[in-house]
Design a binder for these strands. Structure first.
Length: 599
RNA sequence: GGGCGCGUAGCUUAGCCCGGAUAGAGCACCGGGUUCCUAACCCGGGGGUCGAGGGUUCGAAUCCCUCCGCGCCCGCCA
């Protein structure tokens, strides 16, 4: 129920002057009554949208205790000491609470002025401070995405958008693991003529290939069979090991980079359909090439808890780092002198810290222990910094268990996209049979991808998710298409009003219907919602907000005529609709869901 | 066994960081709404021991402890 009240700016947040005034006048009144509380404590106690009686509520329990009075009695004495003003329509006591009803005229005027005046910047704050980095997805380039990985991409991309909006210059990074066993297996198999492939690998590929298929599907197809085969065959294992050493020594087969890039390109093409793109790709091998792994190794050898094992391997005695008992010895360099993943990750993170203040890593829960060992190693090299980990739970299948390529239980992103577009197309055709085919396709694609993104981002990352087609492809209720539809409705209204581009003159006193005021209050909440989501990384609150706004807009739409209303109200209602369209559109942008002017 | 996460209506979930008024939604179900701005919509209804127990508190879904159930991790893999 409590909604955090953070300091904002009058230039970006319509609620700021109201909250400031409540805090000021409450402080004065409390001091006079003998229950003084600091401004910080007060700000923590206030509730936005507190209850049925007012938009800002103050529970008096603590102040009453300080004044040694019963809360209801205290509230009854406190409320009359604060007189209404141009910003506060009324101040009233109810039970233990003092409720502040905001003056609708002032609230509406400020909210519409900011939403319309700032346009695409409404809900955004000016860039301040040093830049930040969000690393997400970073899937091994070994084949197509399944939707488990897509949870990482959607959460990560949304976090980047939201943190950026809240005033941090964010760079998104995809860490490409082109080293180690997984990518090497791909290069190993494709280095051989098809005729020399082991029989089980050929069997896994033959007949499955489709002309013109994406490179991630084509080049990645042998991977599961190769992985299984090599595990069982020491001679193949030795060949792969030799290849890994060649890669680490800086002399990978020429085909290696080419294959990795081709597969990655195919994977990224699918993400691009979800409007997920990356500012930078960081190749793991770069840290070997530029010597930073070597430098980290030197520092690690002299680290406070570095130990040399009998066979020459190096480890950290991490007993003091709170790791599970069995993991207190963290090996970072093999006996043969090659580095381990976590060590290269140290080099990567030192590079991040040099450029960025806020560093967020989006990781599956299976990487949690890795994250904690990384923290331990970062401390050992002498930095006090650690990334902020955003850990999400796996997506499982109804039969139980994680998605796995081998068991055939995986649901592929491309498959999900195809199915979603099919279904969206049917929905479009059912309503708009007159539409040119290109428009039908464009809308179907937007609805399909909007449904998928919303479905993933609306749930808190730490919740386990069981994949069900009917949930993922929902176009109603709490869904992306519901928000898109509401946006299209607002856009349609403005088109028909001949008011597509503004200006939008309005008289706040003409917007006095309960549905109008409720709508204004939700629009006014947007900047605080974004700020909270960026600070807490709870991006699901932006999804919830978009639904709340769309929901209230639809209620307004049914209850209040716009185009058919009398002239003096019409202009103001059009301005309100324009503010809603803008805010809804900005929220969709943050969620990476396409705005549709018509559906 | 240890570490971490999750458990809220038949199903999916918000709220938990930072305790506060009657725990919000969506799906499904039941009953209504389209000569009228897009029915992917709206209105009404039923449905909750917030996993269990204990503690702290004026007050607990929220904080602490114990237990139960489920998931993941515990490699000189990444």
């Amino acid at each position: 129920m409590a909604s955090p009240i953070e300091p904002g700016s009058e230039e970006t947040d319509p609620l700021t002057p109201f909250v400031d005034e409540v805090l000021d006048r409450l402080s004065t009144a409390l001091a006079a009554l003998g229950g003084p509380l600091s401004r910080e404590v007060l700000a923590g106690q206030l509730e936005l949208e507190g209850g049925p009686e007012g938009e800002i509520a103050f529970p008096t329990h603590r102040a009453a205790a300080a004044a040694k009075k019963a809360p209801p009695e205290f509230a009854a004495q406190l409320a009359p000491r604060i007189s209404p003003s141009s910003r506060l329509r009324s101040v009233s006591a109810k039970g233990a609470y003092v409720n502040f009803a905001l003056a609708p005229s002032e609230l509406t005027a400020r909210t519409l002025a900011l939403a319309l005046g700032r346009g695409g910047r409404y809900g955004h704050r000016p860039v301040v401070g040093r830049p930040g980095c969000v690393e997400h997805t970073s899937a091994n380039p070994t084949g197509p995405f399944h939707i488990g990985r897509v949870r990482n991409a959607i959460i990560g991309d949304t976090v980047a958008r939201v943190v950026r909006a809240a005033g941090t210059a964010v760079t998104t990074q995809y860490y490409v693991d082109d080293m180690g066993r997984q990518a090497s297996l791909i290069t190993w198999i494709w280095s051989k003529p098809r005729a020399d492939w082991p029989a089980p690998v050929r069997a896994a590929v033959d007949g499955a290939e489709v002309p013109g298929e994406k490179p991630d599907a084509y080049r990645g197809r042998p991977y599961p069979a190769v992985s299984a085969y090599v595990k069982e065959h020491p001679d193949a294992q030795a060949e792969v090991a030799a290849m890994i050493r060649a890669i680490e020594s800086g002399a990978p087969p020429p085909l290696h980079r080419e294959l990795t890039e081709a597969i990655l390109g195919g994977m990224l093409a699918s993400l691009a359909r979800l409007d997920i793109r990356f500012d930078e790709f960081v190749w793991e091998s770069d840290f070997l090439r530029d010597g930073s792994v070597e430098r980290v190794l030197e520092r690690m050898h002299g680290a406070p808890h570095a130990v040399r094992e009998a066979n020459g391997a190096w480890a950290i005695d991490a007993a003091g780092y709170g790791l599970p008992k069995e993991s207190t010895r963290v090996v970072f360099q093999r006996a043969d002198g090659t580095s381990l993943y976590v060590l290269r990750d140290v080099a990567y993170h030192l590079a991040k810290f040099a450029r960025f203040d806020r560093v967020v890593d989006v990781l599956g829960q299976d990487h949690l222990l890795h994250a904690r060992t990384l923290n331990a190693l970062l401390a050992e090299v002498g930095t006090s910094r650690t990334p902020t980990y955003l850990i999400y739970q796996d997506i499982t299948v109804p039969e139980g268990g994680r998605m796995s390529t081998r068991s055939g239980s995986a649901v592929w992103l491309d498959q999900l996209l195809a199915e979603a577009v099919d279904r969206a197309r049917r929905e479009v055709l059912a309503r708009r049979e007159d539409l040119p085919e290109a428009d039908t396709e464009r809308i179907a694609e937007a609805v399909a991808t909007g449904a998928i993104r919303y479905h993933i981002v609306r749930v808190a990352p730490e919740k386990p998710v069981v994949f069900r087609w009917e949930d993922a492809l929902s176009f109603e209720g709490r869904s992306g298409p519901f928000v898109q539809y509401s946006y299209a409705r607002a856009a349609s209204l403005l088109r028909k009003a001949g008011a597509d581009g503004g200006p939008y003159p309005f008289d706040p006193d003409r917007l006095s219907d309960v549905e109008e005021l409720a709508l204004v209050r939700i629009v006014a909440r947007f900047p605080r919602t974004v700020e909270y989501a960026a600070r807490s990384l709870h991006v699901q609150s932006v999804a919830a907000y978009a639904h709340d706004l769309a929901d209230q807009f639809n209620r307004f739409y049914h209850a209040v005529p716009v185009l058919r209303s009398a002239d003096d109200e019409r202009a103001s209602r059009i301005a309100l609709v324009a503010a809603v369209r803008q805010t809804l559109g900005n929220a969709l942008d943050l969620l990476g869901i396409a705005r549709l002017e018509t559906m």
